[in-house]
Design a binder for these strands. Structure first.
Lengths: 244, 244
DNA sequence: CTAGACGATATTGTCAAACAATTTTGTCCG
DNA sequence: CGGACAAAATTGTTTGACAATATCGTCTAG
């Protein structure tokens, strides 16, 4: 039952509904089972398919994913390094849940990191197809941004990620992804009201405009303001959405 | 030969010469062999015992460290996530070697991150024993700072790390460690002259003074200046010290 | 009836051995 | 000399096992 997965398609037991963000790993999944598992679980956590604080029992996931325990453990360790799950010795992995302080700390970092990214993106706007990429991401964010909470989450992530990539600093882009709030947003969904999303969309427009105008300082300021506002809103949420 | 390691001490085959910085993992090494391996290898890389670009053959390390292959692989993956080694699919792990651009990118990030850390450290100087910890680290850096290049490297790392911890933002401290240049400094040793170290020591004094005076803005400015100067010096080094 | 001791169960941590897939190396032939 | 091909080396993954630790239910003493 488990073993014939090898003879069929690479990973037949998993539904294809999560491949949106893990396409890079799914393509050449021949020689890198771990990458597939990591990408799938990352997407599952960020999208909320795995609940915050949920325990991840190795035996269960092995059965569900049709991979060996060693491979799964590798995946869990990578996710742990990425900060998405927490591994307690002899007690296993749980989907990480951020405390209020950790959320605040991350925003503090994001303000600096993404502020820098926005400034750099403005300076490098004319390189390659940077302008087009930004416009595309911004258009997506505007279009489907308010249609559903889930699409807002995805497009928001995409826009911020694109700006980080446009900075030309790959390590910076990686770190921006790293301090991004994990599934947290899932819990926050119901808690945030529509005004928050509207304001967020306005902020995004301002940031993109500044970058497109190659206004480096303006882009950084707009990004910082955006994140500081977001931080304030999220920290004002009731305690139940935070961990420990 | 390999198997009786289990019956004797936890990790008998390794020399004790590297335990200086990995004591935390060495103590309760009963239930966490992986942590021991990671700590040992991290220290080996940062201190230069493992050369940059060196290939890490699993079979060799298994023999040398007396751990199983699965455990070693876990360790390598964590080191990869930490950016200390690079894992090329089907070709194994090598001690990561940073290109000139990657070094520049990291400095760009460090300027922001450590600048923030210095500012926060100044604001939180009176909490707990922060003042004492900073003074201690600064004293060490001054005392043994110029006695040998290796001790400079260690104390420099310690001072920057202490400031990052004093910020009270644990994630920030972790990220500062993450973008710290790995073994790179090893190669740079011979390349940097004594004036660089003297200037660095002066910068450190200025930073510490500003923090001790609770001058948040001054501390941040001093830290940024310190890092920008260091970046310039390092980037002016010949290409042979950089990777690819 | 509750608190703590105790044992059974569940789960993780580590090891060992094996095989497939891939890369690297060495050799031979045109 | 250069390319084709076989051999060796190395990594990717799986399976099975056992020890160490945590969790849970039960039972007894107070």
């Amino acid at each position: 039952m488990i073993r014939n997965a090898k003879n069929a398609l690479p990973h037949p037991t998993l539904p294809a509904d999560t491949l949106a963000a893990s396409s890079a790993a799914a393509e050449r999944s021949r020689g890198r089972t771990v990458d597939y598992v990591v990408a799938d679980m990352e997407n599952a956590i960020r999208s909320g398919r795995l609940a915050l604080g949920q325990r991840l029992i190795e035996a269960d996931m092995v059965r569900e994913l049709s991979v060996s325990r060693g491979t799964l453990r590798e995946a869990l360790n990578r996710l742990s390094a990425a900060g998405l799950v927490e591994i307690v010795p002899n007690r296993g992995a749980v989907v990480r849940r951020l405390t209020r302080k950790e959320v605040a700390d991350r925003f503090q970092i994001r303000v600096r990191l993404e502020g820098l990214a926005a400034a750099l993106a403005a300076e490098r706007l004319d390189e390659a197809d940077n302008r087009e990429r930004l416009s595309a991401a911004a258009a997506h964010a505007s279009d489907s941004g308010l249609s559903s909470i889930e699409s807002y989450r995805r497009e928001n992530y995409r826009l911020h990620g694109t700006i980080a990539e446009l900075s030309g600093n790959a390590e910076l882009a990686a770190m921006v992804r790293q301090v991004w709030l994990p599934g947290q947003m899932v819990e926050l969904r119901g808690a945030l009201d529509i005004d928050y999303y509207r304001q967020s969309a306005r902020d995004h427009r301002r940031i993109v405009e500044a970058i497109l105008a190659r206004d480096s300082a303006g882009a950084e300021a707009a990004m910082r303001a955006h994140l500081e506002a977001g931080c304030e809103v999220i920290l004002s949420l009731p305690s139940r959405v935070f961990g420990s």
